[in-house]
Structures are given as C-alpha cells and as structure tokens.
Design a protein around this nucleic acid. Structure first.
Length: 598
RNA sequence: GCCCUUGUAGCUCAGCGGUAGAGCACUCCCUUGGUAAGGGAGAGGUCACGAGUUCAAUUCUCGUCAAGGGCUCCA
C-alpha cells in the first residue's frame, strides 16, 4: 500500500549533492564563484570556508560590514558575469611553503589557519587569471559549465569561525545551484510545499495552538481544537501503554533542589534549567526531566527481583531554559510534555525489554503513518562512567534487540551519553524529511547516585538496570511533526472536528440539531455551520478548514433521516442514512481509520 | 547569546516627518440559497514597547521584547 504513492507520476528527481558527482562539482565551483564575486565587490572581505550542502552551497566571509539582503542581488549579478566569462578552474599542486607564501601575499588569515591543518599534497584551485582558493576540489572545468539560470542566493546568516561562538563572527551566504532551470524550479516548488505544511501556519489557520508574547517565548497555549487532538493522542498512548504492561505515574513539577544535586542535574544540566525558587526555608527547582521522580518512586520501598521488570510511564511536563533565538514553533519550546518511561529490570531482561520497546514504538508511530525509520546505535564515549562489563552487557542487549526486531541500524561509535549506550530513532515524513523523536537510553548513573537496589534470589542486594525511553519525545514536537506530515489533513479519527453539518436552509435547523446531538452522544465530533451563508460558501469554508466530512442536509435529507456526504479524502459519497453514518463513524473512530470507510 | 530581516485591524499586507488604508474575517440588513466566495452597510488600530532627535514621529536614531532565516545548542 505504501508503494502506491510512488507510482503516481514521478516528479522531476532532485538528487542530493552527495548522490550526484556532477552536482557536487557544480555546487562546489559555485561557492568559489560566489567568493570571487564577493571579493570583487567587497575587497576587504576575507575568505574562510565554502563547502557544498545537500541542496546547495555556502561560503563564510569575514567582512567589516555585515551583508544585507540587498547585497545578495549585487553578488548574484556579479556571479552571473563570472559564469558568462567561461573562466577556467585549474587544479594546482603546491608545496606548503608555496601555499603559505601565496596566502600571506593575499592577506588571508583564515586560510593560513586552514593550511596549518592540511596534509600534503596541498592543492589550490584557480578561477580565471587572478583568483584562487585553497581547495581539495573537485570542480567543473570552467564556469561556462555552470548554469546562470539555475542558481539562487537564498539568505545571509551569522556564523562562527570553526563553529565556535567564542571566535570570530562571520557572514554566511547560502545559495542553491542546479544543473538546469527546471531543477531549480522544482526545488523552489518543494520549498513552497514545505512552507505550505509549516505547522506554525497550519496551527494558526486551524486554530490548534498559539504562543503568546505576553506569556513568554516557548510556552504553548493549546486551543480547543489542538487540545482535543492532543487528548486523543494521549488517550491512545495511555491505552497502548497499559496493553504493553506499563503502569502510569503522576509526579510533581517542582522538587527540592537537593534532589537535583543528588541526581547530578545541578552539575551537568544547570545551563538548561530554569532558576530555582525560594519557598519557605527551602529552594525548589522546576523539573527539566522526569527521571529523578521515577527513581524516587522506585526507591520508596524495598523491591524484590520478582517485581522486575517495572515499567512506569508518565506524560511529564518539563521546563528547560532555551536560549533566546532558538525557539521554533512547537518544535523547540521551553515547556513541553515528554512521553517518558523508565524501566527497571534485571541485567538478563535487557534484550527482551528493549525489543518490547521497539515493538511499542513501531505500533504507536505507525498509527500516525510514520513507517520509515532510521536507527542509530550510540556506544560508549571516552568520558563515561560505569564498568566495562556493564557497558558491554547493555550494548549487546541493544544490538540483540535490534537484530531480533530485524531493523538495520548505523553505529555511532562513542556517541552514547556518559551514563550509558542508546538507540535513537528518526522518522521520515511525507516530503522526505527526517525527524528525531524516539530514544532509548540505558542509564548506569542514576541507579548508582540514588543507590537503587533490589533483593536478588540469593537474598543479596543488587542494582537494577534502568532504561529511559520516549516514543514521541515531546508531545509538542511530535504534534508539530505530525501536523506537517499530514499538512493539516488529519485522519478522520484524529481530526478535532470530524463532521460538519451544512444546513441548506434554516428550515432544516431542527433536524441538524437532532443529528448533532445524536452524533455527539456517540463520540463523533460534530458541529453545525450556523453562518447562514449559501451552500457553496459553507463548503468552501469547510474545505479550507480541512474538515474530513461535510454533510449537506436539506429538506430531502430531513425527510429521509439521511445526509449527503462529501469526504475530503474520498470526494462525493452520496446520500447515506443516519444510522449507517453512525455505524461507520463509530467504527472509524474505534479502528482509528483515516477515512469514514475503509 | 551572536549575525541578518521583520513587527501597522483577528488574518494577509499597502502606506508615510504633519497622529492611518485594502482584501478576507467579524456585526447588522436584504437574500432561504443544493456542492469551493450572493449583495449592501457598519464596527474595529497607543502603527510591538520605552527613550531620544524634531515645531511635529507610526515614519528618523538608540534600547527592550517578540517573530522569521541561520550559527551554537537541543526533545
């Protein structure tokens, strides 16, 4: 069924740079052309680096004055000129001393620093008679091979030399370049499509949520429609967790700061925490994570090995300090709810537990039509705690589970947290973007710090294995991703307003009200459009608000106790008797169907 | 936090050194209309906030806050 989509008319393919050597040369050369253009127009600009990206290229400059959007136009024009001159690009091998002499002659301090880190042979690429850049290539042979109609300068942005915010502030210019004007047009069409799907746009248009200046950045207000959807998601999540053998917890939003000292967060996480607050004689801390609370709950009494595994989940709302300027719609906020869970188990249970988590993750994500995953396994970093044997056991447990699940994965050697190895899962959305949501982490740290134990079969005290895991990651973020995935066209079971009754005249209002009451009492989210506009307008409004089912009712329908249905996904569904609609809608809700009928 | 851009009606946006405009939405009136915009009238703005320059600031300058695109960081 997933295959169908690809059969419908294949659009112009847009290869990534890393998949297409020709595009790589084009983009790499284009960044040199841009650098030359910039230095022609701004002689004081110093060059730094100018790599390709998957959709284009950028170049970072150190220029006395920042570039403005207006400068981009002039730079683009200059680039077109350079392309028109069909200047050759030539690869020249030089010695370190020669390179150094050339760089010093040009007064390019950043290049000098780059040179210091290079191995011989050192290559430079010339562009025309006078301009050149330290570069490994590859490039096109001459600028005539670049298409002046297939590139665009997209934006200016600040960046830092070597990505280090303590070092020089540079000016980055982003561009995109393609082999043909048609490809550029297709790329721009896709950018438009991403804009159309933007959850911030859809969230406003469909009245799902807002972020209010007066309350502060990064704090989400869920409006009735968004809140209803969130509730549906949460209800489903809870049911799935009970089915999978979890119990649910509720824990406080604040706790005495000593708890955060014990957990270690005050030492290694304080930069991401809201400041403490004074209450009576004690200092309290708003929670940035749920784990210490679950740990305390575990430690509340002596546990037996017979109780394990313990699986505790919570939709836990946490607050984290995010630096100004990094917030982004629902994707990056300061207050959010994690679908957090902690599993306390015996060492020999790790493999089974991880596998169960993978199964539950797949079940839940696929319910929202996320069926393509990219999995990363991160192993022990250099700086870490815990014994070798524990790391090996845990890492093997993760690998064993992935193998049993039959999922392929990449290994990120040394990419784990200092307290344990982890599995990260990225999901692919409808337009091919990858998003990281789910994560499964082993933790040797907290059980140690809180002295967690259980009584083993032989009567001795042992430390349990602790697993953190989240499937959505954060409900806010997941909601944003899901909204973009569906482009606001939510499946029937999830739509905040599932069905809207459109009365053709006021005379059928009584019938409409009877219908609404009956549908609502059967758990179907249904409204009546009382605007009094003509039918065509009612339909237009309903379609714009992406209501899954619009039900036209006039005198004919009122007489027969029926409705004329118009489905957003399935088109005209003809006239249906009330009792048949009730049955179909209830079933669709129960089975979480995308449409009224399969 | 840093760089660029932006902030005018609920939304999308014009405008300008002499205190404001359009379309949609909203309210009312006419229309009772059968599958993507019927017609008319009206209401609605401390031009983000705070200073400064000026006879006069929504417009110019500076600061603050927020948003957008990035950097860094991240669920």
């Amino acid at each position: 069924m997933q295959e169908l989509a690809t059969e419908i008319q294949v659009p112009l393919s847009l290869p990534k740079t890393s998949e297409d050597p020709e595009l790589l040369r084009i983009r790499h050369s284009m960044s040199h052309v841009m650098a030359m253009a910039v230095q022609n127009l701004f002689p004081a600009a110093k060059v730094t680096i100018g790599p390709w990206t998957e959709t284009g290229f950028y170049y970072d400059f150190d220029n006395p004055a920042p570039f403005t959007e207006a400068d981009l136009k002039a730079i683009k024009k200059e680039m077109a000129k350079i392309i028109g001159r069909r200047l050759p690009l030539q690869r020249i091998e030089v010695t370190r001393a020669e390179a150094q002499a050339k760089i010093i002659a040009n007064n390019e301090p950043y290049k000098l620093e780059i040179l210091a880190g290079l191995q011989e042979p050192i290559t430079i690429y010339t562009l025309g008679e006078t301009w050149w850049d330290l570069c490994a290539g590859p490039h096109v042979e001459n600028t005539g091979q670049l298409n002046a109609k297939a590139f665009e300068l997209e934006s200016v942005a600040g960046s830092y030399w070597r990505g280090d915010e303590k070092r020089a502030q540079l000016q980055r210019i982003y561009g995109t370049a393609w082999a043909s004007a048609e490809q550029l047009a297709e790329y721009q069409r896709r950018k438009q499509e991403a804009l159309r799907r933007d959850h911030r746009r859809i969230g406003k248009d469909l009245e799902l949520f807002s972020i209010e200046d007066e309350a502060g950045a990064g704090l989400v207000f869920w409006h009735p429609r968004g809140a209803r959807m969130r509730l549906l998601i949460e209800d489903y999540w809870r049911a799935a967790h009970f089915d999978a053998g979890y119990e649910l917890l509720y824990t406080p939003h604040v706790a005495d700061i000593t708890l955060w000292k014990t957990s270690g967060h005050l030492d290694f996480y304080s930069e991401s925490m809201f400041g403490p607050m004074q209450v009576d004689e004690r200092e309290y801390q708003l929670k940035p994570m749920n784990c210490p609370f679950h740990v305390l709950t575990y430690a509340n009494k002596l546990r037996s090995y017979r109780e394990l595994p313990i699986r505790w989940a919570e939709l836990g709302t946490v607050y984290r300090y995010e630096r100004p300027g990094v917030m982004h719609g629902l994707m990056r906020v300061r207050g959010f709810t994690q679908d957090d869970a902690h599993i306390f188990c015996l060492p020999e249970q790790i493999g089974d537990e991880i596998l169960k988590i993978l199964d539950l993750t797949e079940l839940i994500l696929s319910t929202f039509d996320f069926t393509k995953y990219e999995i990363n396994l991160s192993t022990r970093p250099l700086k870490s705690i815990g014994e070798d044997a524990a790391w090996e056991l845990a890492t093997n447990g993760l690998i064993e589970a992935l193998n049993r699940k039959g999922w392929s994965y990449k290994i990120d050697e040394g990419g784990g947290a200092f307290y344990g190895p982890k599995i990260d899962l990225k999901i692919e959305d409808a337009i091919g973007r990858m998003w990281q949501c789910s994560t499964i982490q082993l933790d040797f740290n907290l059980p140690e710090r809180f002295n967690l134990e259980y009584v083993a079969a032989d009567g001795s005290r042992k430390q349990p294995i602790m697993i953190h895991r989240a499937i959505f990651g954060s409900l806010e973020r997941f909601f944003g991703i899901m909204t973009e995935n569906y482009a606001g066209d939510f499946p029937f079971w999830l739509a905040p307003e599932q069905l809207r009754l459109l009365p053709v005249t006021d005379e059928v209002m009584v019938y409409a009200e009877t219908l609404q009451a009956e549908l609502q009492s059967n758990g179907i989210r249904c409204t009546i459009d009382r605007s009094g506009e003509r039918l065509a307008k009612l339909i237009r409004n309903g379609e714009q608000q992406k209501i899954p089912i619009l039900a036209v009712i006039g005198s004919k329908e009122a007489e027969q106790n029926s409705l004329s249905l118009r489905s957003r996904r399935q088109g005209d569904m003809g006239t249906i008797l009330k009792q048949d609609l009730l049955k179909a809608a209830k079933e669709a809700n129960q089975l979480r169907r995308p449409d009224l009928t399969p």
